[in-house]
């Protein structure tokens, strides 16, 4: 950690004021993500100068409905990157918090030898889609029960998104009635607590090239019973 100089102080201020050209801004933005002391000085300049951008003014009531209407549906990529953000955030947490978490993890009961059934409830924000999944890790089979699922002309494809945030296809499923499916052997390693299951509408033969094309209709994390 190097000591901050007057040049660093002014550079952080210039960045917050928007005085720099696009190239310099990009360099400073990269430094913020790698240099905590410099990032703290940028934050300090924002706090110093933000009163110039006041005062508060109540926003008219008609604005929020307009914003809500234009929000795009979450995509599988969003869900995946959000998981990565979670891990990044966890990494950035203070040492104290990390130690505290460590203690919590130590206090959890030791894993039992018997395979534990895993469940996931997949839902959507608007409540229009719901499906439950129960995974038997000993058999590698999953029981899927669609409660409500409308994929229109398309077919529901199930995805597993582990901690790396990358979506992997488990195949197109039956959206009309409960079915038991075999999870392919190479996918079983990803079926762990905390991994995310998600459904997107895709062509009958599945998403081309194994990359989801539709919005996420329902998603839910795997939990251990």
């Amino acid at each position: 950690m190097t000591a901050m100089t007057d040049e660093d102080y002014t550079l952080a201020g210039e960045y917050v004021l928007g005085l720099l050209d696009a190239g310099q801004e990009a360099v400073v933005a990269a430094r913020i993500s790698t240099d905590a002391d410099f990032a703290a000085e940028v934050e300090a300049w924002r706090l110093r100068l933000n009163p110039l951008l006041g005062p508060e003014q109540a926003a008219p009531a008609h604005i929020w409905p307009k914003i809500e209407k234009t929000l795009p549906a979450a995509t599988l990529q969003d869900v995946g990157s959000a998981k990565l953000t979670f891990w990044r955030t966890l990494t950035a947490m203070s040492v104290t918090a990390a130690i505290f978490l460590g203690i919590l993890l130590l206090q959890q009961p030791a894993p039992v030898a018997n395979p534990t059934p895993m469940i996931a409830a997949l839902g959507s924000e608007d409540g229009r889609s719901a499906i439950t999944a129960t995974y038997d890790s000993a058999q590698g089979t999953m029981l899927l029960t669609p409660v409500a699922l409308d994929t229109g002309e398309l077919y529901p494809e199930l995805w597993i998104i582990p901690a790396d945030g990358k979506a992997r296809s488990l195949g197109v499923i039956n959206g009309d009635r409960p079915t038991k499916m075999d999870v392919s052997p190479d996918m079983r390693q990803y079926m762990n607590e905390g991994a995310l299951l998600a459904i997107t509408p895709e062509p009958a033969e599945g998403a081309p090239g194994g990359v989801a094309t539709g919005p996420v209709l329902a998603s839910g994390k795997i939990r251990i019973l």
Binding site: L53, G54, P55, E56, Q57, A58, A59, I63, W64, I67, E68, L71, A74, D78, V79, A82, K83, T85, F86, E125, V216
Partner: peptide, 22 residues
Amino acid sequence: GRGDRNAFAAVYAATSAKLFGV
């Protein structure tokens, strides 16, 4: 950031006066 619309509505409710001022 993980796509939770209700959480985003809460962000709006808590900050829209500040940001409209900006």
